Amino acid sequence: MKIEVKNVSKSYRHKEALKNISFTIEGPKIIGFLGHNGAGKTTFLNLLSGLISTTKGNISVNGENVFNVPLTLRDICFVAENENFQEEMTIAQTLKANSFFYPKWDGELAMELLEVFALNPKDKVRSLSKGMMSALGIITGFASNAGITIFDEPYIGLDVAARNTFYDLLIEQQTDNPRLFILSTHLIDEASKLFEEILILHEGQLMLQKTVEEWHENIVAVKGNPSDVEQAISGLKIIYKHTFMQELTAIVFTDGQSIEGQNIMLEPVSLQDMLVYLSKQQKERAIK
């Protein structure tokens, strides 16, 4: 599967949610799609799923536009954070309805996962707790067998054991039935080991797209006296800079270059660290 995003913007009445973003994703692969609340993640996922149209630009899957093209949309399963299912239907009716929409639906897998998550197929959706609703969404995503399967905060209300079950199932599914999984989550420390590629949206723009290998090899925090750090990172792509207590922290993309200098420290940058830095940057802008 190949997703191509070309110069996409999405505006609402008082806000530009996405600002001229362009990128390409190819699978099978597990993608970490990250960013703070308001970064534009859910807006983009709704666009990719054909639920809303772009203001400008185009999104295509294997060369076909995603908006208003039923054949393309049948190979995209979007499990949103909420409001995935009709409240008056039972779990069994919900899964049956989904089986009509997704041509590669795996009914046997759906039944197995009902037992894994201890869901009663006779229960109505309206009676389910948040955790049970999340479990039903997870079951739908895996059983859909859609070439592009999207999970947006898929485990709200689930305990640690159930979340670990989801991670195990994700790895198992990617081994047995490879596809393009897109996972958007705030539980980054838990999920980061699953990702093969990472995209970070920040304030409606694509800030970063790197494979996990590129991340570990090329993204580093440089800390120290401001003048020494500035000299050491000269010519490098700067992702973020912050000064605190006369110490400058700069997150940079080295592109394979070595960083040398006196009175500086080099530290690895985790995904969680990156989002913390971006949050600080956002607050600093708001204060100014």
Results as ranks from 00 to 15, higher is better:
residue 168 D to S: 15
residue 168 D to E: 15
residue 190 E to Q: 11
residue 162 A to F: 12
residue 173 Q to M: 15
residue 148 I to C: 05
residue 165 T to W: 05
residue 169 L to K: 09
residue 146 A to D: 11
residue 206 L to C: 07
residue 204 G to W: 02
residue 153 E to H: 08
residue 189 D to W: 06
residue 192 S to D: 15
residue 194 L to Y: 01
residue 163 R to D: 12
residue 162 A to I: 10
residue 207 M to H: 08
residue 161 A to Y: 15
residue 194 L to T: 01
residue 164 N to F: 14
residue 147 G to A: 12
residue 153 E to D: 07
residue 207 M to T: 01
residue 171 I to C: 11
residue 192 S to L: 05
residue 199 L to P: 05
residue 205 Q to A: 12
residue 172 E to N: 10
residue 186 H to C: 02
residue 159 D to M: 12
residue 171 I to Q: 11
residue 148 I to R: 00
residue 209 Q to G: 00
residue 180 L to E: 04
residue 205 Q to H: 00
residue 159 D to P: 06
residue 194 L to N: 01
residue 183 L to P: 07
residue 157 G to K: 07
residue 156 I to M: 06
residue 155 Y to G: 02
residue 209 Q to S: 13
residue 164 N to K: 14
residue 162 A to E: 14
residue 210 K to H: 12
residue 189 D to E: 14
residue 154 P to L: 10
residue 174 Q to H: 14
residue 187 L to G: 00
residue 146 A to L: 10
residue 197 E to Y: 03
residue 202 H to N: 14
residue 176 D to P: 00
residue 186 H to N: 05
residue 182 I to Y: 00
residue 151 F to A: 04
residue 152 D to Q: 11
residue 177 N to Q: 12
residue 157 G to V: 12
residue 162 A to W: 11
residue 200 I to G: 06
residue 181 F to H: 03
residue 170 L to G: 04
residue 147 G to H: 11
residue 165 T to G: 00
residue 167 Y to S: 03
residue 187 L to I: 12
residue 184 S to P: 01
residue 187 L to D: 01
residue 184 S to Q: 05
residue 179 R to I: 02
residue 171 I to T: 15
residue 149 T to R: 03
residue 161 A to V: 15
residue 193 K to G: 09
residue 210 K to R: 15
residue 179 R to V: 01
residue 159 D to L: 10
residue 174 Q to D: 07
residue 149 T to G: 05
residue 153 E to F: 04
residue 169 L to Q: 06
residue 199 L to R: 02
residue 209 Q to R: 07
residue 204 G to L: 02
residue 162 A to H: 07
residue 197 E to A: 09
residue 198 I to G: 02
residue 160 V to Y: 14
residue 154 P to N: 02
residue 165 T to F: 03
residue 178 P to V: 05
residue 202 H to F: 09
residue 171 I to E: 15
residue 146 A to C: 11
